[in-house]
Design a binder for these strands. Structure first.
Lengths: 179, 179
DNA sequence: TCACCTTATGCAACATTTTGCACATTTTAT
DNA sequence: ATAAAATGTGCAAAATGTTGCATAAGGTGA
């Protein structure tokens, strides 16, 4: 029970369709919680039944109809309950680290390649985060409380990418990829 | 298809029972990939059917019998294939960051408390990692290749905890918990 | 014109993970 | 003595997530 809460979080500020949500999950919110459109549509149905959302079909000119979803009072309560409740940290589940245990038992080259690729991805992601920070969150102390929350999520993203890039440096050096 | 690979990784060095594996997943390997004993027993059965493992029932004096599992040739091949293959990075799925988006829409205190708790947990975990590093991986450059792999996983764990502790500091300060 | 992209929603099958329960024996602590 | 913890294996149900496919309309570029 967590995708539902991420969806409700996205609906706090504005009403969105499943398609809109899928896009949003590909961008900002999705930095910290990914979901496919199939999963989102399924979850939306369940949440309607549960009474956490209401829906409204909107006819559009020149485009398929879309279904806008809005948070109900029940939904907001459920969301508040979740935010306030302690959540246990979930395990990281990083393939790469498990693979490293195997490095003495098979060809290390592909693994080194994967680390290098991963580093590039992180650098790209980091550049994106930094651009967002610069444009919208340059002075976090002056932000209103809700934007401070979003800023902190962004900051966590930045730190994570930075950390991973540094680790990749260490790994590549230790494994002799730079020699 | 990934728990199976983590299990096979654990079986590279020695044959283990389901119970042994559950313990191992609670410690070293489990730092990067968690699994309950129920999940492990289920997976072991599937892997036997698939021919990736062989099993051997061992009678024990004063204890229940146990079933030792060993990696087969097929299993080792499957493992090698996985290590060499590119794995796409999975999403982090961190509840805490999603919750932060809600901080302007409900009472921030519990969330601040959760961040403080999280910081304590990270500090404890970090201390454990550092102890392991000190004792067994003090000089990474001199290690044989397979221990280098494990060291790098450990190093990633250390960096992760450290990063998270630093982020908690920033979060607590920005949210005025220290004021 | 034909192929492809965007907008928009959904089903079905499968794989994975979590949660709660059940069983059985032996050692350890109160 | 009695309870609890450790050793050991497992089932069943529910929640969650992934993959592949299906449908439909309109716009864009070669």
């Amino acid at each position: 029970m967590a995708l539902s809460h991420a969806i409700m979080t996205a609906l706090l500020e504005e009403n969105l369709s499943g398609y809109d949500l899928a896009k949003k999950f590909d961008m900002s919110l999705g930095f910290f919680w990914q979901a496919s459109h199939q999963q989102i549509y399924q979850e939306l149905k369940k949440m309607l039944e549960r009474g956490w959302l209401s829906s409204d079909t909107v006819e559009q000119a020149g485009k398929p109809n879309k279904i806008l979803y809005a948070l109900t009072g029940d939904g907001k309560s459920a969301l508040d309950d979740w935010v306030v409740a302690q959540t246990k940290a979930r395990s990281a589940k990083e393939d790469l680290y498990v693979k490293l245990y195997n490095i003495g038992h098979c060809d290390p080259e592909p693994l080194i390649g994967e680390i290098a690729d991963r580093q590039l991805q992180c650098q790209r992601q980091l550049a994106l985060y930094l651009k967002i920070k610069e444009r919208h969150y340059a002075e976090p102390e002056t932000l209103p409380i809700n934007r401070k929350g979003i800023y902190l999520a962004l900051s966590a993203g930045i730190r994570q990418q930075q950390m991973h890039i540094d680790w990749c440096d260490e790994a590549l050096e230790l494994l002799g990829a730079l020699a």
